[in-house]
Amino acid sequence: MTMQEDHKDCFVLEGKMALPNQNFAGRLGSRFLIAIRDRKKIMGLKCNPCGKTFVPPREYCEKCWTKIADNWVELGTEGELVNFTVVRYGDRHLPKKPPYILGQIRLDGADTPLTHIVEGIDPRDVESGIRVKAVFAEKTTNTIMDIDHFEPV
């Protein structure tokens, strides 16, 4: 049986849906980002009993649970690349075009590494242990991308 179809009553209903997403950086995260944005400085939080300095900031020391939220210390904008990977696939949500180096940088004065992008060196030549320095973004966005990237010293 063939269907007799009359299309005169076919409708297309249009709709629009907004999906708002919100990510709160937190009180410490905000201070950390604002220091980068306004003063071009990278700040860490130091636990005096352990002598360890954390970056990105955290409210409590992971070892001794001392509250360190107010014990800000300024770190260097240079550091050592302690680990890295090379991102080779592209996707809309990624900050750079592949291939790029995603590195872990232990800044001078810090005990924990900060993850960021390393540029200015070919992914084939990069190796752990090189010295890198932060290059701050000219146009700030209130994100960690206010450090645009790190590059070899």
């Binding site: 179809e5 009359d6 299309h7 005169k8 009553d9 076919c10 409708f11 297309v12 209903l13 249009e14 709709g15 629009k16 849906m17 907004a18 999906l19 708002p20 997403n21 919100q22 990510n23 709160f24 950086a25 009180r27 995260g29 905000s30 980002l33 604002i34 209130n142 994100t143």
Partner: peptide
């Protein structure tokens, strides 16, 4: 107040629903 950073991103999704001829009669 102290400046606090909150990032907001809004994705807008367009929707189209085709009624077809039968349910279309209802909307007609």
């Amino acid at each position: 107040a102290e400046e606090l950073i909150s990032l907001r991103v809004t994705n807008s999704i367009e929707q189209r629903f085709a009624t077809g001829p039968v349910m279309g009669r209802w909307f007609a």
